[in-house]
Design a protein around this nucleic acid. Structure first.
Lengths: 194, 194, 194, 194
DNA sequence: AATGAATGAGGATTCATTCAT
DNA sequence: GATGAATGAATCCTCATTCAT
């Protein structure tokens, strides 16, 4: 019993199924057929709505990025002091959702794609710029001219800690992750504040 | 005209060709046939020497790791003060060889494999442990009990900076990378030293 | 807002779109979806009106044949002497419409279909009989008993010249085509007339 | 039990199977799988040896053209007078092999391909030039300056008669075909000779 | 030691066609 | 009358892998 307006529903289901499959496989070695099956439709329909495998992947990556962006925004809206704002950004990066096996897989494969895929590269540049910009805004009141370099350092720390926690066999320790990044910030602030 | 002792030569050629192909593709979407062709032999021979595709990949990863380890060791042997030792480790991570497009591709794909592949996971654990251990040894004289946490932080910074530099469209800036990591170290030392 | 009498309009649009698509592709490798799109409707509607792809093709072929037949009739109605009648038939075969890329494609693919498709074969037989009959009628006053063979020869010449002109990269030369066929007729007539 | 030097054997088998399949289908709607099966191998091997479907088709067309060319050459070598040479060329076009259902299908589909396919177009140009050149050479002694136009007319007649005989449901009448073309030649010669 | 030969399995993609609305 | 939704069935092509020589 076909209805109207299925497109957004189907696209959404497909995107979620894609992330799930990538998470299960750990890689992009995932067939459109399996994605479609998980999303409860034929692979032909998946092609109909997305055009091709690459478009499906890209949509999934865009979704992952958007989810991350939303988390950052939400966290920022709840922060009041500069220090809080920085912490909010860091915590968003280490949120529970972000440490789901699926999300980790999505990010790692996203990095791989970003090396050579034009669209993925563009997407990653956006992510990276946004992260840095958010950090600079939050750090300026604390560090003044040093904010730029500090932002880059924190951004790298976030990515590095995420990578290492994500790759550990053990359950990711979100608090430890936050501390690792913010511990440095406090050191920096003390130095400045002194 | 069968030659003796061809095995190590063939294996080596295959490993190099593998890294080159991964670098060219940016991903593990690389065929055994192409690898073998680049290495100047038939794909059947590649199978003969390695058993299967996965083994070829693993050998390539092992090679990448070994090259990195050798660089670290060489750099350490030239360092004399604790501060020098830390810098040596960091610089080794950002060496010219490590920022070759091929090597970056190898590392990023290595991360992907390490999520689910048992052997790759083991390999990554070794890398990670060695890096931390090297850092702790070097930092202990400077930071005492804080060395452990500082080592983890520096290790994460190295990985994060590497990732971000590797993914930038622009040429990697090795000096900036080193500064980003060591700048923090100096801050930490000052704090401690004070 | 359902309109009355849409059927003939839709069918016509579909037929024209089919010929256009076949012309663009040069072959019958044309999808119903594209035909329908060009005709400004959904592919489901195309099926509704025609039943299936083959029926659409057949209708297009019938249309091409009908257009040719109409041209012949019109030309004949303007001819007054036997010689004129023959020339009229030949010229109709080489009319501007008939040398449109689309029409050429339609005819060539029609030939392919006529080998095995029952309906197309029937259609081609009709075309071929009509052409011969027209020629015999026109030639009888000039050649008497030889008219039959001469008609077959001219018919073959028309088809052969059409094929060769249609396949040339250069623009078809309609006058040369006519001359090639009629030059022979004049020779034959002189011989007879002598 | 794989042997060496299979390539030419396989290619040959594939080409023959292709022509047979095209003949059976009457069109190019033929799958690589079926061709390969008829040739007694896997479709993967067909791709291995030819690269793709189009290349297989092209090779089949080239084969058809080559067979025709060989027949013409053989026939010409047995002809002694100019009139004989013309007849030889015509008869070669209507040879038994050329009127096999398979060959007819190959030619008709070849025409379709020649409209848009670059390689097929080139091939057809070669065929067409060779035919005309052969005819001009043979006709010059008989017709002098008129040879060029006469050659084009005969070439068109050959193609046209072939097309019409090939499309008839009835068995092709090779003698009638030859007579239809040569009857005209004799008329032309008489005119000249007078 | 080395390779050409060969294939089974699988995967992306296309498309005619059907159906409920 | 008209269409979006949906799919089964193909089809081309790729590739890791095996094997006889």
């Amino acid at each position: 019993m076909p209805k109207l307006g299925m497109e957004p529903i189907r696209r959404d289901a497909l995107i979620k199924a894609t992330i799930a499959e990538i998470g299960a496989a750990g890689s992009l070695d995932v067939t459109v057929a399996r994605i479609a099956q998980r999303a409860g439709m034929s692979s032909a329909l998946a092609h109909h709505y997305f055009g091709g495998k690459e478009d499906i992947f890209l949509a999934a990556m865009r979704h992952t990025l958007a989810a991350y962006g939303a988390e950052v925004r939400a966290a920022l809206s709840r922060a009041h002091t500069p220090r809080d704002r920085v912490e909010a950004i860091v915590r968003a990066g280490f949120s529970e959702a972000n440490f789901q096996r699926e999300t980790i897989a999505a990010w790692l494969n996203f990095y791989v794609l970003a090396q050579t895929g034009e669209a993925a590269q563009r997407l990653w540049t956006i992510y990276q710029r946004r992260l840095r910009s958010n950090l600079v805004h939050a750090l300026r009141p604390l560090l003044g001219d040093l904010a730029t370099e500090a932002a880059e350092r924190i951004a790298a720390l976030i990515d590095g800690v995420y990578l290492r926690q994500g790759l550990r066999q053990a359950q990711p320790d979100r608090e430890a992750a936050v501390r690792l990044v913010l511990g440095w910030l406090d050191a920096e602030c003390i130095k400045e504040g002194a």
